[in-house]
């Protein structure tokens, strides 16, 4: 076992992940994920049909050479909509995760380092947030405000804050008693500098490993909210709302409306999870 650690500590990050998970799964996971993201980024310049242009003459037509994934009940091209939805879902997911990280990480660090009543208060608040069903909160929040992209991002980000603050807190608490932090204190560092310069950089590895997992969760969440009609406004292409719209036609045998965006959602979430698991193994090995 020690030999294993010795070998793996001499490799760079990519080599270490491959060492642990095998090159085929690593390259395919990251490769397909990057391909999906590129596809989403390049969608406007690819020769795709307009994703929001209805065509009442070819409603609900099955997959064909002209429409690879068929058309939906408005005659919009499902293939093009599925591709364009990558942009919507990934952008929303990423911005909500980044927002959650930017607030959650400093909060967790402060809460863990200062301890006392600040820590207990923040921890209790996180528990309340995490104890409340997210879909219910999202429904209430969006019903009370409006059905906009920004509100979807806010709801998902709000639930990411406690995830990151708790994670960072749990790393900071043991670190604040470690010798190099005491040494920084002895050298005359003030608390903010100790937290953000001496402790936080050492607590970020698991945060990076968590990022893809949060993105996967956020994609699911956004699709879920849209499925309930609370997320992305129609007719913007988005997997969740596409699945929802198609669900009504499933019983009539028009399977292509829901199946293709569903597959895209499934593959993306699965790849992001894999990605997170691989990054996590980097962290586990560190200490």
């Amino acid at each position: 076992m020690t030999e294993y650690f010795e070998i793996s500590s001499r490799l760079n990050i990519l080599q270490r992940i491959i060492f642990r998970h095998g090159s085929i799964s690593v390259y395919s996971t990251f490769g397909i994920l990057i391909a999906i993201i590129l596809l989403g980024m390049l969608a406007p310049i690819l020769p795709l049909q307009d994703p929001i242009k209805p065509n009442l003459l070819s409603k609900l037509s099955p997959p064909s050479l002209e429409h690879f994934f068929g058309t939906d009940h408005n005659g919009m091209d499902v293939f093009s909509r599925t591709i364009f939805a990558i942009r919507t879902d990934f952008t929303l997911a990423l911005s909500s995760v980044v927002l959650g990280v930017l607030i959650g990480v400093p909060l967790g660090a402060i809460s863990g380092y200062l301890g006392g009543w600040i820590d207990s208060t923040l921890t209790r608040i996180s528990e309340v947030i995490q104890g409340f069903p997210q879909i219910l909160f999202g429904m209430a929040f969006i019903a009370a405000t409006s059905n906009s992209l920004w509100n979807v991002v806010l709801v998902v980000a709000f639930y990411n804050i406690p995830v990151y603050s708790k994670m960072v807190r749990s790393i900071v608490v043991p670190l604040k008693e470690i010798d190099y932090v005491l040494a920084a204190k002895v050298a005359g560092n003030k608390s903010p500098r100790i937290i953000f310069f001496h402790i936080l950089p050492n607590a970020l590895t698991p945060v990076f490993a968590q990022l893809p997992l949060s993105c996967a969760y956020a994609v699911q969440m956004i699709a879920g909210l849209s499925f309930l009609g609370l997320g992305v406004p129609i007719p913007m292409p988005e997997w969740g709302s596409m699945i929802q719209a198609g669900a009504n036609y499933m019983v009539f045998g028009k399977w292509w409306l829901s199946i293709f965006p569903g597959l895209a959602l499934f593959v993306s979430v699965w790849l992001l999870n894999m990605c997170s698991r691989m990054l996590q193994s980097l962290w586990e090995r560190r200490e």
Binding site: I178, D179, Y180, L182, A183, V186, H198, N202
Partner: peptide
């Protein structure tokens, strides 16, 4: 000032 016991943990 102080010098700590374990050099492995006393450096960031």
């Amino acid at each position: 000032q102080m010098v700590f016991q374990n050099p492995a943990t006393s450096f960031n």
